[in-house]
């Protein structure tokens, strides 16, 4: 029961990642692509946590936390760049 639920969730997240990748590819504007990258980071966290449940390992948690932080900082930096033309003022 649990393993089939994990499988379904894996399929959902993988499809979501493909859709995000399509948006990243299609654009059309730069903020669209930043949004797609941000969503991809969040979905990757979900994928990692799922892998942790599947393999019964807690070690993936640190990686998930790091991706959450890096994804957010990356989004902020890219938006700042678009807003100001510069990241560090």
């Amino acid at each position: 029961m649990l393993s089939s639920a994990i499988l379904v969730a894996f399929v959902c997240i993988a499809t979501a990642l493909v859709l995000n990748f399509w948006r990243l590819f299609a654009g059309p504007t730069l903020p669209d692509r930043i949004l797609a990258l941000d969503t991809m980071a969040i979905n990757t966290i979900a994928l990692l946590v799922l892998l942790g449940i599947h393999q019964n390992l807690t070690e993936f948690f640190e990686a998930a936390l790091l991706i959450a932080m890096m994804g957010f900082i990356g989004t902020v930096a890219l938006c700042k760049y678009l807003l100001r033309g510069d990241i560090i003022e």
Partner: peptide, 19 residues
């Protein structure tokens, strides 16, 4: 299992919206 299915479904819906 319920939380996994709900979570997966909402993540997919978010990306469908994005696309």
């Amino acid at each position: 299992s319920i939380f996994l299915l709900i979570g997966g479904a909402f993540a997919l819906i978010g990306s469908i919206g994005l696309a």
